[in-house]
Amino acid sequence: MNIYFLVEGNSTEKKIYPKWLGYLLPELIRVKYHDQVQKNNYYLISGKGYPAILHDGLDNAIDKIKETNNYDYLVLCLDADEETVNERENYIENLIQGKNTDLGDTKIKIIIQNRCIETWLLGNRKIFDSRQPLESPLSDYVNYYDVSQYDPEKMGKYNMRNHADFHLKYVQKIFEARNISYTKKFPGDAIKRYYLEQLQKRVQGDSTHLETFHNFLSFCETLKKSMLTNSDAQEQS
């Protein structure tokens, strides 16, 4: 099982995804170059933001996958931003179909971060307890929408320019309240195992919360089962 990950962000996703994949799929080993994949490897690269990821990033990924001819999946990880998940998925699928791309046996999987990866990070209830005394502006954010109680993916943009700006600021203020920091370049505790486990616990306890994050987890579980099945088949043969 070899996976080509093309992520939207040039900093945050490049740091978070490898750590999370290490916890979820320790059998899957990262390689530095796309042509180094052999068995149970993955290659991860940034698409340099949106919409560049769907043009230069995607075209380069397609070329490298065809050249290597050893990838089972091409995985695109993007933000929904101001669109709905269905709107962004349909746009990407139509774009790929328009390219008339033949990747052979390589499957394409689209992971949408609704609204952005910081939206997922807001699902950690352990790091944030809205019942504790809070200072402004975090108290204002909680009064607007308490992410410890309600699904972060359904939260609005408050009085900010867009959803991503507000969700990022919300995460940063939650981290600051715990005397830790979060930036796009240095996501801090978000890359740690305990943080991921709390997000997993959130979707296990609230099946309607963080649906796109649950999609990511389900895909990882599919990969794990496939690798185990292939390993068992090889041992029996």
Rank of each mutant, 00 (worst) to 15 (best):
C220W: 11
L168F: 13
N70S: 11
Q149I: 09
S148G: 11
D165K: 11
G47S: 06
G57Q: 01
E153I: 05
S218M: 14
N69C: 12
G47Q: 07
N60E: 10
F5M: 07
L121D: 02
K15Q: 08
K14L: 15
S226D: 12
L58C: 03
T208D: 12
I108A: 02
G49Q: 04
N215S: 14
N86S: 15
R131Y: 07
E83C: 09
L76D: 00
G9Y: 09
D59R: 10
G156V: 02
L103Q: 00
E176W: 07
L223P: 01
M227C: 09
T183I: 12
P26Q: 09
R30P: 00
S231E: 15
D35Y: 14
I180T: 15
K157P: 00
K48F: 11
Y158T: 03
K173H: 10
E118A: 05
S11D: 08
L21I: 15
H163M: 06
E153N: 01
I108N: 00
G104R: 08
Y43Q: 04
D63C: 08
K107F: 08
Q200R: 15
N143M: 05
D63T: 13
E153G: 01
K109N: 08
G9P: 03
V7F: 07
N2M: 06
H167P: 01
S130K: 03
S226G: 11
F5S: 05
L210C: 05
T229G: 08
K157T: 01
D206W: 14
P133V: 07
Y141L: 01
Y145Q: 05
V37T: 09
T84P: 00
I96R: 01
L223E: 01
P51Y: 06
M160S: 05
L121F: 14
L134S: 04
N215W: 11
L21Q: 05
P51Q: 04
K99A: 02
K15R: 12
Y194D: 15
L21F: 12
I65P: 01
E197R: 12
L95S: 06
T68F: 14
T101N: 01
E13Y: 04
W20P: 00
S136Q: 10
G47R: 07
Y23V: 11
R178C: 10
A190F: 06
Y144T: 01
L76N: 01
L54N: 02
A61M: 02
D35M: 10
V75L: 03
Q38A: 13
Q36L: 11
Y73E: 03
Y33H: 13
C116A: 06
D59I: 10
Q234L: 13
E93L: 14
S226F: 13
E8N: 02
V85K: 09
G188P: 00
M1G: 04
L210Q: 06
C116T: 03
F219Q: 06
L122A: 05
E221H: 12
L122C: 07
N179C: 10
D140Q: 03
K48S: 12
Y73I: 07
E176L: 11
V37N: 03
K157I: 05
H163N: 08
I191A: 12
I29D: 03
G47C: 08
N90Y: 09
V75T: 05
E211P: 02
D146S: 00
T212C: 10
N143Q: 07
R178M: 13
Q172T: 12
R30N: 06
C220L: 10
T106R: 06
D129P: 00
Q36K: 11
K109E: 10
K64E: 11
K66V: 06
R30M: 11
S231Q: 14
Q200H: 10
M160Y: 09
E87L: 09
L196V: 10
E221K: 15
